[in-house]
Simulated assay, not measured.
Amino acid sequence: MIDSHCHFDFAPFSEDPAHYLALARQAGVNKLVIPSVGVRNWQAVRQLATEQDGVYFALGLHPFFSADHTVAAERQLAAELEAESLLRAKNRSHCVAVGECGLDFAIAEVDRDQQLTLLSSQLRLANHYGLPVILHCRKAYPELLRLLKQIPPVAGGVYHAFSGSLEQARQMIDLGLKIGVGGTITYERAKKTRAAIAQLPLSALLLETDAPDMPVAGFQGQPNRPDRLVAVMDALVTLRSEPREEIEKVITLTTAELFHIPH
């Protein structure tokens, strides 16, 4: 399995990445995609992907930290993606997406215009370099949908941490995006999201932990870990009609194809 969204450069993983990767592999999670949050951790995610087998990364400007992002950061992101594209041409890049990017209007005193400008810029960069996008959205779904219709992601992407309605999921899928399924579905009270995930095409789903965030049921208050992707898979199997083997195979293939990860 592939954890399509894991902040593996954060604590506790940063203290002993080899240990946590070994735990993940023992659980059947062989590959990770690490989204970044801004200039401050681009080098960390790149270094992890260079040093550890099966680790890939994305470069982006996360909307939650939009107060930290300057015009210079946008220019720097463009330069970093250009450098990675040259490495990709030599089959030497582990950069597989632009992100984590998106809109977060749940922040106090949010500058909506700045976030919309930043996301527009990142969508255009993703399209220019033929990379998928990893999208974050809180309290901004109508605005996100509108912007994605204006600048459709040509290489697709994933709507991360989905917890919405069936209609919203279908709108994202119609735009060529996948749906990131995480710990939310391990909670029986998440009836709307669980019902939506049960009805979507299997080929539209990716699995993610968002570790160390989004703990799965039974582990509240503890840092989430990539090996607990198994709990998300277990929950998904109870919601779907397909056999587990088919679910694992299809989702792993979908994830590998979206991010151009060897499989």
Rank of each mutant, 00 (worst) to 15 (best):
L103S: 07
P262A: 10
T184V: 15
V237R: 05
S203P: 04
D3V: 08
Q171T: 05
D213L: 09
A72S: 02
R189Q: 13
N224T: 14
G218I: 01
A169G: 13
A58W: 00
L258R: 05
A78Q: 13
Y159K: 10
Q171C: 03
I261F: 02
F65P: 04
L239Q: 10
A256P: 07
P152S: 06
R244M: 09
W42H: 11
L144E: 11
K31W: 00
L202P: 03
L119Q: 01
P215C: 11
I107P: 00
Y159E: 08
R189L: 03
A204I: 06
S14K: 12
T254S: 08
I134V: 08
A58L: 00
I179V: 13
H128D: 11
D234P: 01
I151H: 12
D234A: 07
D227C: 14
Q122A: 04
M172K: 00
P35A: 02
K90H: 12
E15P: 00
D53R: 06
E100G: 08
H136K: 12
N127V: 05
I185R: 10
Y159V: 06
A211N: 09
F65W: 14
M172Q: 04
I261Y: 08
A24Y: 03
I107M: 14
A126I: 00
Q222K: 15
E246S: 04
Q222E: 15
H69G: 00
L147Y: 02
Q171E: 15
D227P: 00
V154T: 15
E242S: 08
T238C: 03
L145T: 02
A44V: 01
I134G: 01
C95W: 04
L206V: 06
G60C: 04
D213H: 14
D104W: 11
P212K: 08
S165I: 01
T50D: 13
F8D: 09
A231M: 10
K149V: 03
V230N: 06
I2H: 07
F105T: 05
Q115E: 10
Y187H: 13
H62W: 07
L135P: 04
R112P: 09
H260N: 12
S120P: 02
L116F: 04
H19P: 00
H136F: 04
N127L: 01
E109Y: 04
T255S: 12
